[in-house]
């Protein structure tokens, strides 16, 4: 088969996001990942809820189901249960996935159903014109919070750890090198894979991730994690993370001064470390990459394993179970006039 290109996964639909929206880059990263895995469009399904993010399925050349607000994980669960052969993706936003649909996301993750769930986190309700969302930082000014939002934001990754997710990653919209790799890893994972993608809503929450994503500041503000490698960051990889055993918290160390020995080695199978990494907040760097991954039996394995065989006979047997009364010998059919 000829090498696939990302263009092979572009549908015939005109993309309608705002110019400069981070969703464009994510779309391209998804298409790149699909091409690099040699995905079969006929066996690939994108299920989304409602929001700017949720429009993505229209733009990908595969099966796509744009559903209702917050319910994509539930609908995708039905798709996967009905046909485990399919490669099923869920596209959701911070409002869609963690506000109205938080319950479904929780259950998809804890069941560990084999879905690839991409949450586009722009910390705002884009489609409804910019109200603050459950991931908006305190103080976010928006049409519904002109004086700044006051409620505590939820951290998507920490939520996923709490739900018992077996794969948790974080990526950045414009990272065309790193993001396709994360998506490829999510696709390869058997079970629910959760990827939070930091996405720039250029219209309503411009550049909230700028320090993490822009070339100039990224090296100090993001830490790329890799299983088995020391947790290092900084322009010259000269900073590291270590565990303060008194506070049970991660803290930064200067590699030169205190040596590299104290720096933690990333263990993606450890959910406790994952929680710490996912909760890192400035001045500590934002963790990017596959932060947690462990093997566990996916939900649908237990499901359609009994393929119906001799189905009609099975149904006939079921009909004849229970408390049988056979009137075939005893009654005469003439006297049955008033009967059913």
């Amino acid at each position: 088969m000829a090498e696939l290109s990302f263009k092979d996964f572009a549908s015939d639909q005109e993309v309608r996001w705002c110019p400069g929206c981070g969703d464009y880059s994510i779309l391209k990263a998804v298409q790149r990942a699909l091409a690099s895995c040699g995905a079969d469009p006929a066996n690939t399904v994108f299920v989304s809820g409602i929001g700017c993010a949720a429009r993505l399925p229209y733009y990908i050349e595969s099966y796509g189901f744009h559903t209702i607000h917050g319910r994509a994980p539930a609908i995708a669960t039905g798709v996967k249960l009905a046909n485990p052969e399919l490669n099923v993706w869920v596209i959701t936003g911070d409002g869609d996935g963690l506000s109205i649909g938080g319950n479904h996301l929780l259950h998809a993750l804890r069941r560990n159903i084999d879905l690839n769930i991409l949450l586009f986190n722009n910390e705002i309700y884009g489609l409804t014109k910019g109200q603050y969302s459950p991931t908006s930082r305190i103080g976010t000014t928006s049409p519904s919070s002109p004086g700044g939002s006051v409620d505590n934001p939820v951290r998507p990754g920490a939520f996923a750890v709490g739900a018992g997710a077996t794969f948790i990653a974080r990526g950045i919209d414009i990272d065309q090198k790193g993001l396709p790799d994360i998506l490829t890893a999510a696709r390869a994972h058997r079970g629910a894979a959760f990827v939070e993608i930091l996405q720039n809503c250029i219209v309503y929450n411009k550049d909230v991730f700028d320090s993490v994503s822009s070339r100039k500041t990224a090296s100090d503000h993001q830490i790329r994690v890799e299983h088995g490698q020391p947790l290092l960051y900084g322009p010259d990889q000269d900073k590291g993370l270590r565990l303060n055993t008194k506070t049970l918290q991660l803290e930064a160390v200067q590699v030169g001064a205190q040596g590299i020995d104290e720096v933690l080695i990333h263990d993606e199978t450890n959910p406790t470390l994952a929680l710490m990494l996912l909760n890192l907040a400035p001045p500590l760097p934002t963790a990017i990459g596959v932060i947690h991954r462990r093997q566990a039996e996916p939900f649908e394995q237990a499901f359609w394993n009994a393929k119906p065989r001799e189905r009609r006979q099975r149904v006939v047997t079921l009909l004849h179970q229970g408390n049988l009364v056979d009137h075939r010998q005893s009654a005469s059919s003439e006297s049955a006039a008033d009967f059913r």
């Binding site: 399904v45 559903t67 319910r71 539930a74 609908i75 798709v79 996967k80 009905a82 479904h104």
Partner: peptide, 20 residues
């Protein structure tokens, strides 16, 4: 499939029908 609520139940049923 015992879903987490009625919305998820109808959602999963719709998903199943979508998938054949």
């Amino acid at each position: 499939f015992q879903a987490e609520d009625e919305i998820a139940a109808v959602g999963a049923a719709i998903g199943a029908s979508y998938a054949g």
